[in-house]
Design a protein around this nucleic acid. Structure first.
Length: 710
DNA sequence: GCGATCAGTT
DNA sequence: CACAACTGATCGC
């Protein structure tokens, strides 16, 4: 739970994610995402009054957050005062004290946070330095290095303070399986169940919170089945999500909720109330997304745990793991870090103790090593691969093409869903209508693929694995050991050549034959061809943006917001495609001109003081907006940096953090020598530059556009 | 009656 | 384990 009080030391006149107490005096408000614990006071009468008395106090957030927020009638009173800012578009905001008229300028940039739809981090630049408020985030290793707007001149920006999501900032949460791994595990579990018959359904036992959407959309896309939910009107203007959801209960994937859902489930009743279809009882399993983690020395990668006859837990995390947090922070390397969260069982001091060494202030006074990076190249190595882990998991899969998956079955009607003939002709030995199946009907080797709930995956596990080799056998599994004495782990099913998996790989539909089991068989489709992690599985997939996939270079865009412009920004997006919020009625009342700033101001303000000037477009193209105002939009594609400063060229790929560690003294020595003599390093760079420039830029852009569009 | 807070639950 | 939200009880306005 966030302990951030809403204000940052550097910019105390703005409030973020808190709207009570001191924050009632803020000149501007920022909301990082639409979760209740970040909206404290947002609908309180005191703030409502403040709004009524003020002419210009506004709430700034991403377009998706705005849309989600305004869907709730309780927040409708904000309608005229919410200003959406495009992702990755530096935007200048005037912070005006309405009593004194005192004014301060600040440039804010929204960066995708990978936490839930619309979630962003805020990068603020102004007279008191550059600060980053992360909100809640989940970013895989190396993702910070990929964010262009955290950089300038090929280097990470000089960031004074980071206000950091430290939810899992504890070594015991060292590793959390990546989003892609988790999605894949859940997908295979779902596949193994729903492919048995049209009467086999899964219930995704999700919390009432945003953040599961990418799970729904990927499952829907994979299986050609919409996911049943209670409400979907909040997504009415986000077709990429909306099309994968339904309020029609006649589907095999449910994510509906009910206060007594668990109770219902005991009685084979889905939260939406149905128990059968065509008077044939349904067979339901529940999958509860839960955070699972692994200690530093644990190589286990279980993603699914069986917790009951037909209940499963699936790994799922909205927050970065300990190692992801450290990677992120050490890459940014700010002067200060302020934890936003004190994880249970620890203290502010302990968290700071962990984080301080990753900050500049604690590092030596010797010249700082700022990663210069290496030659750009097409992005083939995926960020999510386990760092030093060389167990080969997913080795053959990881350079997964980020292509868009075309569903095998386009139809959304479950009746036509490909049904294994086997299942229909072979009525399983089901426990009539109770939906409870005896464990013994499950082949023993399948049992071994799950860690029972009681067997925690925390500390105890680490010691366990130390004692035994790879084939660590938890007490629960001992009776089911295979002949060779080794109990297969869940992970073996992901390996192409893992023994004992072939049987259940190719002929999934007949898997019921293996013993007439009612339990889903977990397996991995290790055939590269049929393995699809759709582009949506990317950690940024939760970000739906108004921006089209054109990938116009946002790097040097600054949009200056006046109240009129703000609205216009939305209007432009209507022409851009994918996401079209119904904002016509959201036009804020015209406001005094003083809010409108000229581009030159921005330039001089920030260029002079901060070398990280990425704000001005070099050759702007003006887009006429419906309001008559103009907004500068740089549309030149894939150009080099316009700056004459060689340091600001984009010749260098930004390295993944693991490679950005402080080099050894002797290696530095070597590099310096090479640099001094102008030897091969330079030559190679030039070479690489020639052929890599175009593709690299494109890959970055497609990366970000992917972030936006899904 | 509404909102804030806390404890308990999922 | 933990998230994020919901429920219900209590208290104050």
């Amino acid at each position: 739970m966030s302990c951030f009080e809403g204000q940052m030391a550097e910019y105390p006149t703005i409030s973020i994610d808190r709207f009570d107490r001191e924050n009632l005096r803020a000149r501007a408000y920022f909301l990082s995402h639409c979760h209740k614990d970040h909206m404290k006071g947002l609908r309180a009468p005191s703030l409502k009054r403040r709004l009524e008395c003020s002419l210009k106090v506004c709430l700034y957030c991403s377009p998706v957050t705005k849309e989600l927020l305004l869907t709730s009638p309780k927040y409708r009173f904000w309608e005229k005062r919410i200003v959406s800012i495009e992702i990755e578009t530096p935007t200048q905001i005037s912070l005006v004290d309405e009593a004194s008229g005192e004014k301060e300028e600040i440039v804010v940039t929204l960066l995708p946070a990978g936490h839930c739809p619309g979630s962003v981090m805020f990068l603020f630049q102004g007279n008191n330095g550059t600060v980053l408020y992360t909100g809640d985030f989940r970013l895989a290793k190396g993702e910070a290095a990929r964010m262009e707007l955290l950089h300038s001149g090929g280097r990470v920006k000089d960031i004074q303070s980071v206000y950091l999501d430290t939810t899992f900032c504890n070594p015991k949460y060292y590793q959390i399986p990546s989003r892609e791994e988790c999605l894949r595990g859940i997908m295979e579990l779902v596949r193994s169940w729903i492919s048995r018959s049209p009467y086999h359904v899964v219930w995704l036992n999700c919390k009432a919170a945003y953040g599961y959407e990418y799970l729904f959309t990927n499952l829907s896309e994979e299986f050609g089945l919409q996911v049943h939910v209670d409400k979907l009107d909040m997504f009415r203007n986000m077709p990429d999500i909306l099309h994968h959801l339904t309020t029609d209960r006649d589907t095999q994937i449910h994510a509906c909720r009910h206060p007594k859902a668990e109770e219902y489930f005991q009685w084979s009743k889905l939260p939406c109330g149905i128990t059968s279809k065509n008077r044939i009882p349904l067979h339901t399993i529940s999958i509860k997304p839960s955070t699972m983690w692994f200690g530093e020395r644990t190589r286990k990668t279980n993603i699914i745990m069986r917790t009951g006859e037909s209940s499963y837990r699936a790994c799922f995390s909205f927050h970065s793991s300990y190692s992801e947090i450290k990677d992120f922070l050490s890459y940014i390397c700010p002067v200060n870090v302020y934890p936003n969260v004190i994880p249970l069982g620890t203290t502010m001091d302990k968290v700071k103790e962990i984080l301080k060494p990753l900050c500049r202030s604690s590092q030596s006074t010797e010249p700082k090593y700022k990663p210069l990076g290496k030659l750009k190249r097409a992005r083939t190595m995926h960020l999510d691969s386990e760092e030093e882990d060389d167990d080969g998991l997913f080795d053959d899969l990881l350079p997964a093409p980020l292509r868009h998956k075309v569903p095998n079955q386009l139809t959304l009607h479950p009746e036509v869903f490909p049904t294994p003939a086997v299942s229909q002709n072979q009525p399983e030995k089901r426990r009539e209508s109770t939906g409870c199946f005896k464990a013994e009907s499950m082949p023993t080797f399948l049992w071994a693929n799950f860690i029972d709930c009681e067997e925690s995956n925390s500390e105890s596990e680490e010691s366990e694995i130390l004692g035994s080799a790879q084939g660590d056998t938890g007490p629960v599994f001992q009776p089911q050991q295979r002949a060779d004495g080794e109990v297969p782990q869940w992970e073996v099913f992901f390996k192409r050549d893992a023994e004992g998996t072939d049987d259940c790989l190719e002929n999934l539909p007949s898997s019921t034959e293996v013993g007439g089991s009612q339990s889903p068989k977990l397996f991995s489709d290790s055939d590269g061809e049929s393995t699809h992690i759709s582009s949506q599985a990317s950690s940024q997939s939760t970000h739906i943006s108004e921006q089209g996939s054109q990938g116009w270079d946002s790097q040097s865009d600054t949009v200056l917001l006046s109240s009129q412009d703000r609205n216009s920004g939305d209007v432009t997006s209507l022409n851009k495609g994918v996401y079209r919020p119904g904002i016509k009625e959201n036009i804020p009342a015209p406001q005094p001109e003083q809010n409108v700033l000229c581009l030159k101001d921005t330039c001089s303000d920030f260029k002079s003081r901060d070398q990280d000037v990425n704000i001005l477009p070099s050759a702007g193209e003006t887009t006429t907006l419906s309001s008559g105002k103009q907004m500068l939009q740089e549309k030149r594609p894939l150009t080099l940096s316009s700056s004459a400063d060689s340091q600001s060229s984009s010749d260098f790929e930004i390295p993944c953090t693991p490679e950005a560690e402080l080099p050894k003294q002797e290696h530095l020595q070597y590099l310096y020598e090479k640099l001094a003599t102008g030897e091969s390093i330079v030559v190679e760079k030039r070479k690489g530059l020639l052929h890599s420039r175009a593709t690299t830029k494109k890959s970055i852009l497609s990366d970000t556009s992917q972030n936006h569009n899904r």
